Amino acid sequence: MLASLAANLRHAPVLERDHGSMPIPPDMPITPDAPLTPDTKNWTWVIEKPCPECGFDAATFGAKDVAAMLLANAAAWPPVLNRADVRSRPGESTWSPLEYAAHVRDVFRLYHHRLELMQRDDNPLYPNWDQDETAVAERYNTQDPAVIAAELTEAAASLSAAFGRVTDWSRPGRRSDGVQFTIESFSKYFIHDPIHHLHDVSR
């Protein structure tokens, strides 16, 4: 699965907040999976100060805590995917709960790949990923919520185990926009994404 994801990564603008379709029941609320206005903000500041939207504070935990934190986050998504409004967008600029969950699944896979690069190569340059283009191309809002729940859980378990095997948290990696990480800062930056998106679907 990681090899498949890596093959789909392309060099394009970094847009990071960094499967088969299923028939849709006629009574299921759904919003077409048209593209939203891309979020082009650089969220790396969450490593240094709390997020005022979701309350995330990187100063309150260590990098070694991230493995357990992501498993706890993953466990909260299946109930979200059972909601009747799972395909409904609450507004013109906000994804549906299903789209957020599919995005989080792919974030888990993407960061697993990047973590492997950092452990294998010297200061690797991450392949870029356009999250908004992926959401449309992969038709996130028509995917099966049960499948997404299973895949998200599996991806979280794999990434958690990979973080648990890290022995050198100082190994570096970088994005094409010039942002430089160590595995330590990378882990703290990463975990904000699924935490923030769980907050997005809980409002």
Rank of each mutant, 00 (worst) to 15 (best):
N141H: 03
A63G: 04
D132T: 00
K64L: 07
V107I: 10
T44A: 06
L81T: 04
A7S: 12
L198N: 04
S96T: 08
E53A: 11
V179T: 14
G62I: 02
L81R: 09
N123K: 14
T44Y: 09
G178L: 00
H113N: 08
G173F: 04
A157K: 04
P32C: 06
T40Q: 11
D27Q: 14
N8M: 10
P124C: 08
I30W: 07
S187P: 05
D144H: 00
N141L: 05
G20F: 11
T182F: 12
W129G: 09
A12I: 04
L71K: 05
A137L: 03
G178S: 06
V80S: 11
P145S: 09
R89Y: 00
L115Y: 01
V46R: 04
D144W: 11
F186H: 12
A135D: 05
A102C: 11
L71I: 09
R109Y: 05
A6N: 06
W45D: 15
R175L: 13
P50C: 10
A150L: 09
R171Y: 00
A150D: 10
I30G: 10
R17E: 03
D121I: 02
P29M: 07
W77A: 02
D33S: 14
I148W: 07
P35W: 07
A68Y: 06
F190K: 01
P79T: 10
S185Y: 15
W45Y: 12
T94R: 15
P194E: 14
K49Y: 02
M1G: 10
A84W: 09
H199P: 01
L9N: 09
D85I: 03
A68N: 15
E133S: 02
D132H: 05
D121Q: 14
R114E: 07
Q143S: 03
H113V: 14
D121G: 00
V104L: 06
G91R: 14
T134K: 10
R120L: 06
R165G: 06
